[in-house]
Amino acid sequence: MLKDIAFIFGTTFMYATPLLYGALGGVFSENSGVVNIGIEGMMTIGAFSGAASTFILLELYGNALWVPWAGFLIAGLAGCFLALLHAIACITFRADQVVSGIAINFLGPGLAMFLGGRIFGGSGTTPTIPLEAKLIRPFDTILKGKPLLGMMLNQYISVYIVFSLVGISWYILYKTKFGIRLRAVGEHPKAADTLGINVYQMRYIAVLISGFLSGLGGASLSMAIIANFRPTLVSGQGFIALAAMIFGKWKPQGAMWACLLFGVTTALQIYLGSPAVGLKISTHLLSMIPYIITLIVLMGFVGKSSGPAANGIPYEKGKR
């Protein structure tokens, strides 16, 4: 019994982590008024770049401590690169933000598979990185020989990073001048502009942060949950992250609870399907659990969610 709870706890956090990176990315972008449905594409390119660059650095410099961190950082920057395209289209050229986001979602996987094919041959699956070159598990040595605590807390550093990012994001968005300006730009850009805030600049920064976080989310899949990139790796998690952000009412802490809910339902799905429980339910039905619970929670408990007022509306200086 205790073991089962520990398992569900551990799986919840493991599964929620990539989603939460993406959702936090969405929080930044959309609070500044730029809809970002390109999270999926940014996560994919991040997952690829993280795994690929770690593998290449490993070949070049051997098994140094900084290698996985460099890979993680490069993943974020790769996400930034796609985010920059999104920002140029949506902010400078005032393109339709949804259309641009869709383009990003095609571009991310396409680019990853193209580069993967060029560098490693084949269909874009990167070679497996050895355990020592994956992201670290900070409590691995302390938790050796403690199976219960190990199941719960022996997680990769990416998990701890993302949950601290929730607090940091909250602080930035609600307690700093920068954050308040960012939200002002998303609520009423004209008023912000009148007061001397550079709307374009704020939005650019927000979209780039969003890309960086999504890229990290992808890397948390390819460098922690498994040890390589493959084209099927992200498969829709960027969209779940997007849903979690809306579900969490565009707030970092809300997004966290939503991601944990997705995580716990997935853990429950696996737990209920395990032979120990002995339920004779088809796996097809079990895999619906996360979505059904989400629908129920959305209908019953969450209430109306409304985003930033100027979300999705391009800002044009001097327009009435």
């Binding site: 493991m14 599964y15 199941m151 899949l221 099927t232 498969s235």
Partner: peptide, 12 residues
């Protein structure tokens, strides 16, 4: 195509 699920099942 869901390595995260395979991962959790194996952990369990």
């Amino acid at each position: 195509d869901k390595p995260a699920i395979g991962r959790s099942i194996a952990e369990s």
